[in-house]
């Protein structure tokens, strides 16, 4: 009883005095890691008592008005918070770019920004160029929702003098014939974050097909690398959390939110087994990442 009362008092003071409100609806490893990274990065400037973590369902006017800045983690939390249309600046993290762009329009006086989950198109092409300089062919398999992204990727690739083949399909039933066409010659297959094409059920057969055609697949998460993709390009929750903390500090310091952008930092995952099986020699991930960062730093 005493403990409960103490907890309530502590909670009440925290809510009243919290300057940072973190909202997440999910409790996956990535979300927890992100939350932990934000907290770690804000300390010691922002004490833990100033940071409140809550669920979207508990959002009330009192809670919203008390804080200085709102941080959402995950696509669902971002959507729910955007619907509340708070007056405080909102930073959305761990959501894809197209999800951010589909959020409800912001109210007058409202401010918001985001740190995208997906990597920028140029960075992906850069990975291709830096990691597999001898492979000049890029294959893209696009579903209805990822045609725009495929078009952007194709454009970026062509800028780098890569030849690009794109297959647009409507359903997952067409995957195999499309792959047959795409992989007719050795090429690099770049997976797109479109769950209608690339999902848990299709990925094995897609990987098998590409492997049969001696063509590597490049994924966009550590899971892809574990499943059998040759390379994976992604930002870790810690990297996202650090960048989010920077933005929060800026806001708390009276500044504005940075524009929406991808995570500046990223990691490259390499599946050595796949590389060996396909007979592809790769530099170390750090070396590749370094070359990519150098390239990005140049105007």
């Amino acid at each position: 009883m005493l403990l409960f009362v103490a907890a309530m008092i502590a909670c009440g003071r925290a809510v009243a005095g919290a300057r940072v409100l973190m909202v997440t609806s999910e409790h996956g490893a990535a979300h927890e890691e992100t939350l932990a990274a934000i907290r770690a990065s804000l300390a010691p400037g922002v004490p833990a008592s100033d940071i409140l973590t809550t669920e979207p369902e508990q959002l009330g006017a009192a809670v919203l008005t008390a804080c200085r800045v709102i941080v959402t983690v995950g696509t669902e939390a971002a959507q729910l918070v955007a619907e509340q249309a708070p007056r405080q600046p909102v930073l959305h993290t761990l959501l894809p770019r197209d999800a951010y762009e589909r959020l409800p329009p912001v109210q007058a006086g409202g401010r918001r920004s985001a740190i995208y989950l997906d990597q920028p198109v140029q960075r992906q092409i850069a990975l291709l160029v830096e990691a597999l300089p001898e492979w000049r062919q890029l294959a893209l398999l696009a579903g209805p929702r990822s045609q725009a992204l495929a078009a952007r990727l194709a454009a970026a690739a062509r800028e780098q003098q890569l030849s690009v083949t794109v297959e647009n399909i409507a359903t997952d039933r067409e995957i195999y014939p499309a792959l047959q066409r795409l992989l007719a010659e050795r090429t690099v297959l770049l997976a797109l974050p479109d769950s209608s094409i690339f999902n848990s059920y299709t990925i094995q057969n897609v990987l098998l097909t590409s492997y049969r055609h001696r063509s590597p697949l490049i994924g966009f998460s550590p899971a892809y690398v574990r499943a059998g993709a040759l390379l994976g390009l992604y930002s870790t929750p810690a990297q996202v959390g650090e960048q989010a903390a920077e933005a929060i500090r800026a806001v708390l310091a009276g500044g504005g939110l940075p524009p929406p952008q991808a995570s500046r930092r990223f990691e490259i995952g390499i599946n050595e087994n796949v590389a060996r099986s396909l007979g592809i020699a790769l530099d170390s991930a750090d070396a590749i990442a370094a070359r990519m960062l150098q390239k990005e730093a140049r105007p």
């Binding site: 999910e26 996956g28 490893a29 990535a30 979300h31 995950g74 696509t75 669902e76 959507q79 761990l94 959501l95 894809p96 999800a99 989950l117 997906d118 929702r145 997952d172 974050p193 479109d194 769950s195 690339f198 999902n199 848990s200 059920y201 299709t202 990925i203 094995q204 057969n205 966009f220 998460s221 550590p222 899971a223 892809y224 499943a227 059998g228 992604y234 930002s235 870790t236 929750p237």
Partner: peptide, 27 residues
């Protein structure tokens, strides 16, 4: 004949909000 599944949703794929395939019956 069901496709074998590989877990891809580690929160970083960015597709969680699009109705992840894991919730559906496997095709």
């Amino acid at each position: 004949v069901l496709p074998s599944t590989l877990e891809l949703d580690d929160g970083l794929t960015g597709v969680a909000g699009d109705g992840p395939a894991g919730a559906k019956r496997p095709p």
